[in-house]
Lab assay of single mutants.
Amino acid sequence: MTFKLIINGKTLKGETTTEAVDAATAEKVLKQYANDNGIDGEWTYDDATKTFTVTE
């Protein structure tokens, strides 16, 4: 399955996707991606669209 991350950061905005077997696995990968890029904020997840959003 494809999961999307929408980034609403102070210095970085955009989106990325990852392939994962489930939402929990995708969340780990996407949170690591955000952490690697210095993004720390509030996370939400929409199961209907398989989209995570992080807002700083």
Results as ranks from 00 to 15, higher is better:
M1Q: 13
M1K: 09
M1W: 14
M1R: 09
T2G: 05
T2H: 08
T2Q: 09
T2R: 10
T2I: 14
T2M: 12
T2E: 13
F3E: 00
F3L: 01
F3D: 01
F3G: 01
F3T: 00
F3S: 01
K4S: 06
K4R: 12
K4Q: 06
K4M: 09
K4L: 09
K4T: 13
L5F: 04
L5I: 03
L5T: 01
L5Q: 00
L5S: 00
L5E: 01
I6L: 09
I6P: 00
I6H: 06
I6Y: 07
I7Q: 03
I7H: 05
I7F: 15
I7G: 02
I7A: 04
N8A: 10
N8S: 06
N8C: 06
G9D: 03
G9N: 08
G9M: 15
K10P: 10
K10E: 11
K10D: 09
K10N: 15
K10Q: 14
K10H: 14
K10A: 15
K10R: 13
K10V: 14
K10L: 15
T11L: 14
T11N: 10
T11D: 13
T11M: 09
T11E: 15
L12T: 10
L12M: 14
L12D: 09
L12P: 05
L12W: 15
L12K: 07
K13S: 09
K13G: 07
K13E: 07
K13M: 14
K13C: 06
K13Y: 13
K13P: 07
G14W: 15
G14A: 11
G14E: 12
G14V: 10
G14N: 09
G14H: 10
G14D: 12
G14P: 13
E15D: 06
E15C: 06
E15Y: 07
E15R: 04
T16C: 06
T16A: 12
T16V: 13
T16M: 12
T16N: 05
T16E: 06
T16K: 15
T16Q: 08
T17K: 12
T17Y: 14
T17W: 10
T17P: 02
T17G: 05
T17H: 11
T17I: 08
T17Q: 15
T18V: 14
T18M: 11
T18N: 03
T18K: 04
T18A: 11
T18H: 07
T18I: 14
E19R: 14
E19N: 14
E19P: 05
E19T: 15
E19F: 15
E19S: 11
E19L: 15
E19A: 12
E19D: 11
A20S: 08
A20M: 03
A20K: 03
A20V: 04
A20H: 04
A20D: 03
A20G: 04
A20W: 02
A20E: 05
A20N: 04
V21C: 08
V21L: 15
V21M: 11
V21W: 12
V21D: 11
V21A: 09
D22F: 03
D22V: 02
D22I: 03
D22P: 01
D22S: 08
D22W: 03
D22K: 03
A23S: 09
A23K: 13
A23T: 09
A23Y: 15
A23P: 09
A23I: 13
A23L: 12
A23R: 12
A23N: 05
A24R: 13
A24W: 15
A24P: 10
A24V: 13
A24I: 13
A24H: 13
A24T: 13
T25N: 10
T25F: 09
T25G: 09
T25S: 14
T25K: 07
T25V: 10
T25D: 09
A26Y: 00
A26I: 02
A26P: 00
A26W: 01
E27F: 14
E27G: 07
E27I: 15
E27V: 07
E27W: 13
E27Q: 10
E27P: 00
K28T: 13
K28Y: 12
K28N: 08
K28V: 11
K28G: 09
K28E: 09
K28P: 05
V29E: 08
V29F: 12
V29S: 11
V29C: 06
L30S: 01
L30T: 01
L30V: 04
L30G: 01
K31R: 14
K31C: 04
K31A: 06
K31Q: 11
Q32W: 06
Q32K: 13
Q32G: 08
Q32R: 14
Q32T: 09
Q32N: 13
Q32M: 08
Q32E: 13
Y33D: 02
Y33M: 05
Y33A: 03
Y33K: 03
Y33G: 02
A34L: 07
A34Y: 02
A34N: 03
A34W: 03
A34F: 02
A34M: 06
A34K: 02
A34D: 00
A34V: 07
N35W: 14
N35Y: 14
N35P: 01
N35H: 14
N35V: 14
N35S: 11
D36S: 11
D36L: 07
D36P: 01
D36Q: 12
D36M: 09
D36W: 06
D36T: 08
D36F: 08
D36I: 08
D36H: 09
N37G: 05
N37Y: 12
N37K: 12
N37R: 12
N37T: 08
N37P: 01
N37I: 13
N37M: 14
N37S: 07
G38D: 09
G38C: 07
G38A: 08
G38L: 07
G38E: 06
G38I: 04
G38M: 10
G38H: 11
I39C: 04
I39E: 02
I39M: 05
I39H: 04
I39W: 10
I39P: 01
I39T: 03
I39A: 04
I39F: 07
I39S: 02
I39D: 01
D40Q: 11
D40W: 10
D40N: 14
D40V: 15
G41P: 01
G41K: 01
G41S: 02
G41A: 03
E42W: 10
E42F: 10
E42Y: 13
E42N: 10
E42M: 08
W43R: 00
W43I: 03
W43F: 05
W43Y: 03
W43V: 02
W43D: 00
T44E: 10
T44P: 01
T44W: 08
T44R: 09
T44S: 11
Y45C: 01
Y45D: 01
Y45N: 00
Y45T: 01
Y45P: 00
Y45V: 01
Y45A: 01
D46R: 03
D46L: 05
D46W: 04
D46N: 11
D46T: 05
D46Y: 04
D46I: 05
D46Q: 04
D47M: 10
D47R: 08
D47E: 14
D47G: 11
D47H: 11
D47V: 12
A48T: 15
A48H: 11
A48P: 10
A48Q: 09
A48C: 04
A48Y: 11
T49L: 10
T49A: 09
T49W: 04
T49G: 05
T49P: 02
T49R: 07
T49N: 08
K50I: 03
K50Q: 12
K50C: 06
K50P: 00
K50Y: 10
K50A: 08
T51F: 03
T51H: 03
T51E: 05
T51Y: 03
T51R: 03
T51A: 05
F52T: 00
F52E: 00
F52N: 00
F52K: 00
F52L: 02
F52M: 01
F52C: 01
T53A: 05
T53D: 02
T53C: 06
T53P: 01
T53I: 10
V54C: 05
V54W: 02
V54P: 00
V54N: 01
V54F: 03
V54K: 01
T55G: 05
T55Q: 08
E56S: 06
E56K: 04
E56Q: 06
E56M: 07
E56W: 09
